[in-house]
């Protein structure tokens, strides 16, 4: 497999594929962050989580279309409004979904699985009906295109660097939010014991709604950044949902640190394997490696160990 490459070439390939995998890592982390909140903290398996990613993507695409059509001079700056807007739209839809559907299913996990799967199909059909079945792309600002070349053989895409910076900021922000604010404490206590949280004065209904909506909003941001590396379509999110769940389980439920490490591990491994073999074979090898790791660490790599 490596015979036809020199050592220098292999080194450059590894570095560039690693940076290629960096964008994937960030999408995994952004999607995994939402799942970390909704599955790791609330115990809800949201099969429609990928569709919130798509909501973020479409918001970004429609915002770019609006800017191109009506405010072309604003094209280099619209990203800073489109990204919070993607968060806001996904957050709002998440709030409504929790209120109408999820809140009625908290003690019925299997029903939640089925209901959210149904919801994902409904949302996909809504995207087809109201936006269109064809793939859609956002017009990106010039400064986001191109690459940075630290050496003659290495090219690092700028959009990858921007996604990386955003992911670091968001992950750090989420850590600070959950660990240092009263809302974060409410979220963590409610996820661990809803009854006891109520018995200490926490309105768990509002906390659950906020937590779910926050997870959807974070996924929306992931979707907005997805448009900088790929086009979007009604089913675009389904390509990432299985891998995002794997990232979460491999890292250990409830461990943000584990989530980031396992996202990095999966994204880099996937990116490097896909360079040397077909995409299908790369997936086979990837899942085999995950299977072996989970057989050894059944609760994930970084699960917490305390007396309950």
């Amino acid at each position: 497999m490596f015979a036809e490459y020199s050592f220098e070439e292999i080194k450059s390939i590894l570095i560039m594929q690693s940076f290629g995998g960096l964008s994937l890592l960030c999408i995994y982390v952004l999607m995994g962050l939402g799942l970390y909140v909704v599955f790791g903290q609330m115990g809800v398996i949201n099969m429609a989580h990928a569709e919130f990613l798509v909501i973020g993507s479409y918001t970004m695409c429609l915002a770019s279309k609006f800017v191109v059509d009506h405010m072309p001079t604003f094209i280099n700056h619209y990203l800073w409004i489109a990204i919070p807007l993607s968060f806001g739209v996904a957050f709002l839809v998440g709030w409504i979904v929790e209120w109408l559907l999820i809140s009625r299913l908290y003690k019925r996990p299997l029903d939640t699985l089925l209901a959210t799967w149904g919801l994902s199909l409904i949302m996909q059909q809504c995207f087809r009906t109201f936006i269109g079945a064809r793939e859609m792309s956002a017009t990106l600002p010039d400064w986001l295109m191109g690459s940075w070349a630290p050496t003659d053989t290495i090219d690092i895409p700028i959009n990858g660097l921007v996604i990386l910076a955003t992911t670091i900021i968001l992950t750090t922000g989420l850590v600070i939010f959950t660990r240092k604010t009263r809302w974060g404490l409410r979220m963590r206590s409610t996820s661990q014991n809803r009854d006891m949280s109520q018995a200490l004065g926490i309105n768990t209904k509002v906390t659950d709604r906020f937590t779910f909506a926050l997870a959807c909003g974070i996924s929306g941001i992931g979707g907005a950044f997805l448009t900088t590396v790929a086009s979007t379509s009604p089913t675009a999110g389904t390509a990432y949902i299985v891998d995002a769940f794997l990232v979460l389980v491999l890292g250990g439920l409830g461990s943000l640190f584990g989530l980031v490490i396992s996202a990095g591990f999966l994204a880099l491994l996937s990116s490097i394997l896909e360079f040397f073999m077909t995409g299908s074979m790369a997936k086979v090898w990837l899942y085999l490696i995950i299977f072996i790791v989970l057989a050894k660490f059944t609760k994930g790599l970084f699960s917490s160990k305390v007396r309950t």
Binding site: L185, R188, Q192, N193, M196, A199, L200, G201
Partner: peptide, 29 residues
């Protein structure tokens, strides 16, 4: 709780993954 009842359940129901200080701070809601 806002009206003035407080509850210590059977089995204590401590939040196992929160620190001692965080456990107390939840009561400050």
């Amino acid at each position: 709780v806002y009206s003035g009842l407080a509850y210590v359940p059977q089995g204590r129901m401590i939040f196992p993954n929160l620190t001692v200080t965080e456990n107390i701070k939840i009561g400050l809601e």
